[in-house]
Design a protein around this nucleic acid. Structure first.
Length: 853
RNA sequence: GCGGGCGUGAUGGAAUGGUAGACAUAUCAGACUUAAAAUCUGAAGGGGUUCGCCCCGUGUGGGUUCGAGUCCCACCGCCCGCACCA
């Protein structure tokens, strides 16, 4: 047997079964130990692990293993976000049942997960499409109904008039249905909503307490919730249809009321709808607006257009002043009152609109100095900046926007023109989906009793298995018998709701279910009390708003219904958002110059550049982008694990790039990671055979303690790439060390331990080779001895006018005065001073000296 | 369009406001080898040099500071989110 060969294919399965046999990663409620709950956002079971998963779950694994070695009782579970559109697409394309497809994918991915050697407690695994899981979700839905957190109202959806089905935003391409190609229409349906808006203020305020969340995520959530203070008032109309003698508007800039030049209403505004009955032009405009998709992005990007209704309104301060009323495509019915007044001088969108329709532009304020009237750029200084007012109606000639807004609201309230109100941008959460592969909404429609929740003992309301996907639309709607049921209230024949829930509902409480995955209620109080909150949550920044905000809402709603303790209303104590894994893209062109993408493994590198291995055709290399199947810039982790082992894949995704940033996968990098691990193994086998004393034991042990300190700091601060760099450096030191066998053994064992969260299989192998006790996965984390970390002398750079010119080596605790004296005596300083005296001398003890001349 | 983020050698990146480029990749040189691979040792931001050193350099342009990759302002480029993708 060749002892020096690093053979991940042999050692990895061996240690994986050793951990399993020992139950190393089974989470147990142990009241005598502190707990630590590590959670990575669970995956959608697409069928194949990709490198992004490897990175995400490796990071969580480093934390989980590290915390376990620190004596925490660790919960590190895994499950599947298993409902959603792709399964229905597969059903349509391949005639497989979404459930069969999903569970087959889960089996596949689970096997791939296992090969990575993650410290997961698989006994807690569940999929959100398991009836046991979604049945508990239905029970909670009913609880939420009882607490008034659920209601129905009309909302618009993307409607495909050919397929007669509702489309998701991603299924709309250029305003057309992705399958039918038909122009999409906006259509109103009665839908179910969660009252997340009841919690707007609370969700906003509580962000301040999330100290271990990235500021950027908190800022994004703050802006999303969008608290604003403004004035709500009504314009009285002139010659408007019956019932529309007033138009309510909301504005955050009432101070610009004297610069108003038009009133704009949403195409979905009741007045707009009333007017289209008598005007072909308005009807056509509204119809065109309704052809746009429902996404806010699409509306905002569209050219700003409007149509003059012919109506006018009177200015509240001057009844002789009439403003035209436009229907405009950029006004959202969902925000404020669906109507605004436009002040072109101080809003770019309004200005563009005014120029287009030749409406007046009236400055209400100008800059304090050089205040020029607005031409083609609206004047929108920060609200905290003092400006000169031309048309103040209740405040000084110079005042800030903030001061003016407050004064304007006060003035309007005193004069009976509206009142100050606080509004939020956050809308209620529409959870209805007209689809099969989701959690059925557990309510029943009865002719006599109306909408009635299903009885809890009848849960779960299971999806029928016998459905067909040969036609578009919701199979639940056309199922011959599934809808039929008895009314839970009166017992008469009634019909089930056929809407299912948004998959965000599934992922809004899975973290709580992991604390007691088999419980007969959504959670178990003792388990939730012990394990909550999630101490470290890890996932992509793409979830910064929706998933995380919905989860925060759900935790509150669950607490109200008794499913979570009060302490868990903020379920994630710490959040880390990791970057993506990217790769170069390889393209050739077909005969019609369309791009043809190629997998990295089909590319060969020659001196003249990249070529297609099979044909030798030259390949264009496009800089890195997120790995995606359509661009074929993917590297299959299965291949990497087969070729190099899981430890290499893990080591690579942790190296080089900081975790929060994207990492580029390169073949050379993977090769290098493998080489390094091989080297570590070789050094370990050398050391295992070493005997006798040597020189420099103390230096090696000092380097070891430095490594313990640095690597630990790296893990604690999510700087895994710097931990890896320190491990490289320590490996170099150890390899060159001439220290005695005992010291080198100790250093090597410590190196294995420090690597164990990242490359656990190799670490176990080395640990066993060098006589470590038990599993390294169960060994306590090494402690750095502070006495071994202090240096006796420090090197201090000398700067002259801020530029480094020399350095001196001084004892660590030398006084400032003595350092100054030494610095001034230095050749370079004497030369620079040229006989003169320094203007200033700055000494930062232990750091730097700066001589200002 | 709106909100958020990022930008450092050939490449990935390091750097509590204090020596810019740690560590690694690719490259080059040397050792070992019949040879190659593997391994080991070493060099290396760009430019200049009288070989003492000097100048320039962290997307661009300004600013604060004894000192800025780091803080502030503006701009450019790329990435993420925008409520039915997950």
């Amino acid at each position: 047997m060749n002892m020096s060969r690093f053979a991940p294919g042999e050692i990895e399965p061996k240690w994986q079964s050793a951990w399993e046999k020992a139950g190393t990663f089974t989470a147990t409620r142990d009241e005598t130990r502190p707990k630590y709950y590590v959670l990575e956002m669970f995956p959608y079971p697409s069928g194949n692990l990709h490198m992004g998963h490897v990175r995400n779950y490796t990071m969580g694994d480093v934390v989980a293993r590290y915390k376990a070695s620190q004596g925490f009782s660790v919960l590190h579970p895994m499950g599947w976000d298993a409902f959603g559109l792709p399964a229905e697409n597969a059903a349509m394309e391949r005639k497989v049942h979404p459930g069969d497809w999903t569970y087959a994918n889960i089996d596949n991915m689970k096997a791939q997960f296992r090969s990575l050697g993650l410290s997961l407690d698989w006994s807690r695994e569940f999929a959100t499409c398991d009836p046991e899981y979604y049945g508990q979700q239905q029970a909670m839905f009913i609880d939420f109904m009882e607490k008034g957190l659920v209601y129905r109202k009309n909302a618009v959806v993307n409607w495909d008039p050919v397929d007669m089905t509702v489309l998701a935003n991603e299924q709309v391409e250029d305003g057309k249905g992705w399958r039918s190609g038909a122009p999409v229409e906006r259509r109103e349906l009665t839908q179910w909503f969660f009252k997340i808006s009841d919690f707007s203020e609370e969700l906003l305020d509580a962000l301040d307490g999330l100290d271990n969340w990235p500021d950027k995520v908190k800022l994004m959530q703050r802006n999303w919730i969008g608290k604003s203070r403004g004035l709500q008032f009504a314009f009285s109309t002139v010659d408007a249809p019956d019932g529309f003698d007033r138009i309510e508007v909301y504005t955050t800039r009432p101070d610009t009321l004297m610069g108003a030049s038009f009133v704009g209403i949403s195409p979905d505004h009741p007045l707009a709808k009333a007017l289209e009955r008598d005007s072909a032009e308005i009807a056509a405009f509204n119809a065109e607006c309704r052809k746009m998709g429902t996404s806010e992005e699409e509306m905002e990007k569209a050219e700003k257009k409007g149509v003059d209704t012919g109506l006018t309104v009177r200015h509240p301060f001057d009844t002789g002043w009439e403003l035209p009323v436009y229907i405009a495509n950029f006004i959202l019915m969902d925000y404020g009152t669906g109507a605004i007044f436009g002040c072109p001088a101080h809003d770019q969108r309004d200005l563009d609109f005014a120029r287009k329709y030749d409406l007046p532009v009236t400055d209400t304020f100008v800059a304090l100095e050089n205040g020029a009237p607005v031409e083609n750029t609206a004047f929108t200084p920060p609200k905290t900046e003092k400006v000169r007012w031309l048309r103040s109606f209740a405040w000084d000639e110079t005042a800030t926007g903030e001061e003016a807004i407050a004064a304007a609201i006060r003035f309007c309230e005193e004069n009976g023109v509206g009142h100050g109100v606080t509004k939020f941008r956050l809308r209620d959460w529409g959870l209805s989906r007209q689809r099969y592969w989701g959690c059925p909404i557990p309510v029943i429609h009865c002719d006599d009793c109306g909408v009635v929740p299903e009885k809890k003992e009848n849960l779960p309301v299971e999806l029928p298995k016998d459905v067909s996907f040969d036609k578009p639309g919701n199979p639940l709607d056309r199922h011959p018998t599934w809808r039929d049921c008895a009314c839970p209230a009166c017992g008469k024949p009634a019909q089930r709701e056929t809407d299912t829930m948004d998959t965000f509902v599934d992922s809004s409480w899975y973290y709580a279910r992991f604390t007691s995955p088999g419980a007969a209620t959504p959670t178990n109080a003792a388990d939730a009390e012990y394990w909550m909150n999630v101490d470290q949550y890890i996932g992509g920044v793409e979830h910064a708003i929706l998933h995380l905000l919905y989860s925060r809402f759900f935790a509150r709603a669950m607490q109200i219904c008794g499913h979570l303790p009060q302490k868990a209303v903020e379920p994630f104590d710490a959040l880390f958002t990791q970057g993506m894994v990217t790769h170069e893209i390889y393209v050739t062109r077909d005969e019609r110059d369309r791009p043809v993408y190629h997998l990295p493994e089909h590319i060969e590198w020659t001196e003249s550049g990249a070529r297609l291995g099979a044909t030798g055709e030259a390949v264009e290399v496009i800089p890195s982008a997120k790995m995606s199947k359509s661009k074929k810039n993917v590297v299959d982790p299965v291949n990497i694990v087969q070729a190099y082992g899981a430890d290499t894949a893990r080591w690579f995704v942790l190296s080089d790039s900081p975790p929060e940033r994207d990492v580029e996968w390169t073949a050379a990098g993977a090769e290098a990671a493998f080489k390094h691990l091989s080297r570590v193994w070789r050094i370990a086998t050398d050391i295992a055979g070493a005997e006798g004393p040597g020189t420099g034991d103390d230096d090696l042990l000092r380097a070891m303690h430095k490594a313990i300190h640095d690597v630990t700091m790296g893990i604690e601060s999510f700087g895994f790439n710097t931990s890896v760099a320190k491990l490289y450096a320590f490996t170099n030191t150890l390899q060159k060390s001439k220290a005695g066998a005992d010291a080198r053994r100790e250093a090597m064992r410590t190196l294995a331990q420090l690597m164990s969260p990242m490359t656990p299989h190799l670490a176990e192998e080395i640990w066993a080779l060098l006589g470590g006790e038990g599993l390294v996965a169960a060994a306590p984390w090494p402690q750095a001895d502070p006495a071994m970390l202090v240096e006796d002398t420090v090197i201090m750079p000398i700067q002259i006018n801020g530029k480094r010119r020399a350095e001196i080596s001084v004892p660590k605790d030398m006084s400032k005065e003595e350092v100054e004296k030494l610095a001034l005596a230095h050749d370079a300083v004497i030369r620079a001073l040229n006989g003169g005296a320094p203007k200033k001398l700055i000494v930062v003890p232990g750091r730097i000296i700066n001589v200002v001349i």
